[in-house]
Amino acid sequence: MSRKAALRRELLAARALLTPEDVRRTAAVLSAAAADLPELAAAETVAAYVSVGREPGTHALLDALRARGVRVLLPVLMADNDLDWAVFEGAEHLGPAGRGLLEPDGVRLGPQAVLDADVVLLPGLAVDGRGMRLGRGGGSYDRVLARLAAAGAHPALVVLLHDDEVVARVPEEPHDHPVDAVVTPAGTRRFPPGGRDRPRVS
């Protein structure tokens, strides 16, 4: 088992111990904290995602952003694991999709739609002190980040996590991108500007 796979297994096991009340409480705190981020306050378009299960909750944040007039893009998983996007039109326009996900039912805008985002909220299992993110391993958001880099687009990259998911070190591969900030119930941690250009660790 790779170091990434072992860490994913450990973190998912910890999430499995969370109660519904834990999840609700964390979601409320995260929504308020994330909504106060200057990057989100100034954003016209935000690429986000719909949390499921014991992921740090995004539902209240999605509603708050939409109520403020922010254009919120939500991912639609394609057959090749890449992501298409559609505009969030409210919880009543979310439906079940593969892998237990919820997806918007609106017009598909194409994978390039993420290039319009001022902020991208990335799902994750952990972030370390360098801003390196550990995802679930499907590769969908690796493609999103590569697409942004190829286009020269630099939206703020933000991850929402539970407190104990900010770890000492995330195993890193050459294609991995550091994020700009992580928001947990304990507060927001930012990482140095220009992190996308700092040397990678092999």
Score class of each variant (00 low, 15 high):
Arg136Cys: 00
Arg136Val: 00
Arg136Ser: 01
Arg136Thr: 00
Arg136Asp: 00
Gly137Gln: 03
Gly137Glu: 02
Gly137Lys: 02
Gly137Tyr: 01
Gly138Trp: 01
Gly138Thr: 01
Gly138Lys: 04
Gly138Pro: 02
Gly139Cys: 07
Gly139Phe: 03
Gly139Glu: 04
Gly139Lys: 08
Gly139Pro: 05
Gly139Thr: 05
Ser140Val: 01
Ser140Tyr: 02
Tyr141Gln: 05
Tyr141Leu: 06
Asp142Tyr: 07
Asp142His: 10
Asp142Phe: 07
Asp142Asn: 09
Asp142Trp: 06
Asp142Glu: 05
Arg143Gly: 14
Arg143Glu: 03
Val144Glu: 11
Val144Asp: 10
Val144Thr: 14
Val144Pro: 09
Leu145Phe: 11
Leu145Thr: 10
Leu145Ser: 11
Leu145His: 11
Leu145Arg: 10
Leu145Trp: 13
Leu145Gln: 13
Ala146Asn: 04
Ala146Lys: 09
Ala146Gly: 14
Ala146Glu: 15
Arg147Leu: 15
Arg147Gln: 12
Arg147Gly: 10
Arg147Ile: 05
Arg147Met: 11
Arg147Lys: 11
Arg147Thr: 14
Leu148Phe: 08
Leu148Gln: 04
Leu148Tyr: 05
Leu148Ala: 12
Leu148Met: 10
Leu148Ile: 04
Leu148Pro: 05
Ala149Asp: 15
Ala149Leu: 14
Ala149Val: 09
Ala149Phe: 05
Ala150His: 12
Ala150Val: 04
Ala150Ser: 14
Ala150Phe: 05
Ala150Trp: 07
Ala150Lys: 13
Ala150Glu: 15
Ala150Asp: 14
Ala150Cys: 05
Ala151Ile: 07
Ala151Val: 09
Ala151Ser: 10
Ala151Gly: 08
Ala151Cys: 10
Ala151Tyr: 04
Ala151His: 08
Gly152Cys: 12
Gly152Asp: 13
Gly152Gln: 11
Ala153Arg: 15
Ala153Ile: 07
Ala153Met: 07
Ala153Thr: 06
Ala153Trp: 03
Ala153Phe: 06
Ala153Tyr: 10
His154Glu: 15
His154Ser: 15
His154Gln: 15
His154Ile: 00
His154Ala: 15
Pro155Asp: 12
Pro155Arg: 08
Pro155Cys: 11
Ala156Tyr: 12
Ala156Phe: 12
Ala156Cys: 13
Ala156Val: 12
Leu157Val: 11
Leu157His: 12
Leu157Ala: 13
Leu157Asp: 12
Leu157Arg: 15
Leu157Thr: 11
Leu157Cys: 11
Val158Asn: 09
Val158Phe: 08
Val158Lys: 06
Val158Trp: 05
Val158Cys: 07
Val159Cys: 13
Val159Trp: 05
Val159Gln: 06
Val159Glu: 05
Val159Tyr: 04
Leu160Asp: 09
Leu160Trp: 09
Leu160Ala: 07
Leu160Met: 14
Leu160Phe: 10
Leu161Ala: 05
Leu161Phe: 04
Leu161Ser: 04
Leu161Arg: 03
Leu161Pro: 10
His162Met: 00
His162Leu: 00
His162Ala: 00
His162Cys: 00
His162Tyr: 14
His162Asp: 02
His162Trp: 06
Asp163Phe: 01
Asp163Met: 02
Asp164Arg: 14
Asp164Val: 01
Asp164Met: 00
Asp164Ser: 09
Asp164His: 13
